[in-house]
Design a protein around this nucleic acid. Structure first.
Lengths: 138, 138
DNA sequence: TTCACTGCAAAACGTTTGCAAACAG
DNA sequence: CTGTTTGCAAACGTTTTGCAGTGAA
């Protein structure tokens, strides 16, 4: 296992493997699947295994360092942005981009009233055509 | 138009198997997984197979008769309600309920402006605690 | 006949788990 | 030492697919 001579852990349990997974996700602007994270993490830590990537993703997720999103296309995706935000999905090319809608407090309250749930969070998903695809088909 | 002797098909391609799947979904108030739909369809048509249920679900979905939803807990769920609506998920028991938020036209426009997508639809997901769970822990 | 659909089993995915070995404290 | 994490492979649950057989037009 890697030498931990220095103080390379910013949080308890943040092992080199988990670090590699986290770095990979933070280095990307997109929302990679677990497989893509694995491919990237391999370059950072050639000895890392697939199972460890999955374990790390689970750890990082529950530690609040990354976020998991799944929009029903098979594999889950991972998001470096952990603050509340919304997603837009291109129905043409599948691209997934972040955006943030203001006034979500109002939304939360309205949704809670309609559903009678005690609200915790709201998430909005927009389906549409991204600028790139719109340009192509214009 | 001539009276058809056996008018058992309301749409072209709506075979008994697909009918059974559709009936099962329409008979339920919840949002069953494919496995649950299969279990229910079996009672209606004991000879139906798992693969046919999946094929039927795909067919019905693209025919616009049902809707598929997936909120990242493993299996997809199927919704008899095809009109635009939103979902609330209980973080305690996993229950999934429908509700409809008004003024989604405004939301759509705002989300489109923020994301620069050509909008098609918006969907809102609320996470929180359902009335039943709230009562239990009160 | 032609064509679409079924049913079965097997494959294909994405993900998790059992376990022994390696490590950290 | 004890508890945690790794890596591997095998298992798992969900979904799709290949293909022969069936049934309707």
């Amino acid at each position: 296992m890697a030498r931990t001579t220095k103080r390379q852990e910013e949080a308890p349990g943040l092992t080199p493997q988990r670090q590699a997974v986290l770095s990979e996700i933070r280095a990307r602007e997109d929302h990679p699947t677990a497989g893509e994270v694995f491919a990237g993490a391999l370059k950072r830590l050639p000895s890392i295994s697939f199972a460890t990537v999955y374990n790390s993703l689970r750890y990082l997720k529950q530690a609040g360092l990354i976020r998991e999103i799944s929009f029903g296309d098979g594999a889950s995706r991972y998001d470096r942005e952990t603050d509340r935000h919304d997603h837009a999905i291109c129905t043409c090319c599948g691209k997934l981009v972040d955006f943030d809608l203001p006034q979500t407090g109002d939304l939360l309250r309205m949704a809670a009233r309609k559903s009678r749930f005690k609200p915790e969070s709201v998430h909005l998903t927009l389906r549409g055509v991204c600028p790139d695809c719109r340009e192509e088909t214009s």
